[in-house]
Design a protein around this nucleic acid. Sequence first.
RNA 1: GGGCCGGUAGUCGAGCCAGGACCAAGACGGCGGCCUGCGGAGCCGCAAAUCGUGGGUUCGAAUCCCACCCGGCCCGCCA
Length: 666
Amino acid sequence: MAQTIGQGRQNQADPFGSFRRECVVALKTAYSSLQQTSEHSLTDMSIESTIEDPPNPTFGHLASSLSFELARIQKKKPIEIAKTLAEITRQLSKLNLIESIEATEPGYINFRANLTKLTELTLKSIQQTGPNYGLLKTEAPERTIVEHTSANPARPIHIGTAKNSIFGDTLARLLSARGHIVRTHFYIDDTGRQVAIMAYGYKLLGEPTPVGKPDHYVGKIYSVTATLIEIEELKKRLTLLKKTNLSDMDIVATTKSLDEWVGIAADLRSKYPAEFDQLGKLISLDPDPENSIRELIRKYEKKDPATTALMRRVSRTVLIGFEETLRKARIRFDQWDWESDLLWTGRVAELLERLKESGFTFNKGGALELDVAKTVEKFGLREKLNISPTFEIPSLTLTRSDGTSLYATRDIAYTLYKFERADRVINVIGTEQSLAQLQVKTAFWITGHRKETENFIYFPIGHLMLEGQRMSARRGRYVTFDQVLDETISRAKSEVDKRSPNIPDEIRQRVADRIAISAVRYAILSVEAIKSTNFVWDKVLNFEANSAAFINYAYTRSSGILRKLGKISQPKELNLLIDPGEQALILELSKFPETFSKAADDLNPTLLTLYVNLLAQRFHEFYEKSDISHLSNNELKWQRVELVLAVRTVLKTLAELLGLELAERM
RNA sequence: GGGCCGGUAGUCGAGCCAGGACCAAGACGGCGGCCUGCGGAGCCGCAAAUCGUGGGUUCGAAUCCCACCCGGCCCGCCA
């Protein structure tokens, strides 16, 4: 909690945070008084870190365990110290948001908030600042680049990659709301083998105009081409192995792999018979397909005009499909960076020169290697980069023996590029890349960016399994993001049809879209990014508690109340909201600023999904218990309406942060 | 062999970084209640947890340290 207690944000409303700061100040005052009178010498200590949330409301709203620490030094019982501290605190402090300070067994000091004042502060702040309530601005804004998704433009975005997109997009929303200058970048990995294979197949077919969604159409060509070539290569290797008779183990493994690919091929053939047979014929006419692909890669790196035109054309076709999918999920990018540009502008070559000059590279069979381990030892980076002392860091191949570059090399160049434009770079990438990210980071350090290395942030995304099965894009075993969105929309549509038959179909469709998109985003965000999770349809399609629909339903209910009321009036005061359900709801609202800033600073969107669910839950409880529209006591009615309006404001802000879309009716 | 990350009720999953009232949040599933007043996609209640295992540190450990076990991932002239 310590880092959420900042100075200099007096002008920004943070009701619960203000209460917390008041408790800290009061306790600090009491502690320094104790320091002067105590016969034992008491060192300065962090009062903030002793402040915690009590387990239940009967203990107040915040508590301190300071007495337990002091008990040891003073050789007294914690409860006695607690009583003394509570007494001094009460005497010395001017209490504003604190209602009471009490010492309780076994030695806690419990602070109770003055709920009348907290209510007024919270509701007035929300009323005055509206959509800005809670979005505490950082005191140190940073130009931040969030790179995410960066899917290979060779096949549609699948649900595993979508997890990456959703977290990346949400992080950007959070940081931007926190006051950072954020830009999202999509890194188009177009110089690798996969795009070359895709272009090869596409070219063989005579560059057809896509039928249906372009990424799906071209993705199909890629899968078929890649499979056919894989089989060709495996067959060749098997023949070679049998001829040289080197190792039975290799033969067995290759045969097994071949069998697997033949199975995949059969599957693809049944799905896309026309393309499969056509490509099969065309590829068999090529004496050396593998070489054709290598040629494409080589020529593209050299920016050969015809090759460049082809590669860019086919990549762009796929990217149009990506954009459509991402737009559907409310994900947008500020910039699309072509990996090939890094080569053509000489950035990669420049980087290689710098690395060579550093003296940490060596030649291995014509390939250029970076001695990462040596670098780490030389500069004592183990501690700095948090590397285990027994870990032998492998070297990193920078260029192939034919001189062409590799992904990691280009990624280092890209890192330099990004840091020319930002103070902080966040890479949202799967956990399987953790070693690669470490190597890139180390190389970045070598290039002289010592200070910036601290702001190189790897945000790992845990693997997403599909109903217990590992997804494999290469093997065509995956569910696309489009499928998930479409399925969820159709499911949401039938729910809306069932529950709200009286609204026009056009609106029902729009509502279903919103509920579905939100449901998918919420389901992904509600589990921490790093955890590997199992994608289960039931969870995404669940519209009950702890889902986006549950949150939307709170909003819809509030809309219902307002609709029923028609014209609304301002209450004279805010002194009648004393029901426990109301107070619990207000307390939750008062904590939003702290929750938001912690979520943004810790890069933890999941925290906000938990919070928004809790807020919705408190609202539903309030709704069930407190009448509004049929109240005869007008003052109470308008006070409750004020609370409803406040909840709506905060729900809308949260929806904006998480990329959820709220429907008035559902 | 080495490394990284995870392990919390039948299932999913917060809390762990900054140890404290933890007889551990919340959800799904199970069981039982609540609609002649703002929409039941809701609310109320019950049952369900050796916090992976074993040690250690501490007045106090789900949380910190050590060892081990299980699961995922990585250690390519792939990306």
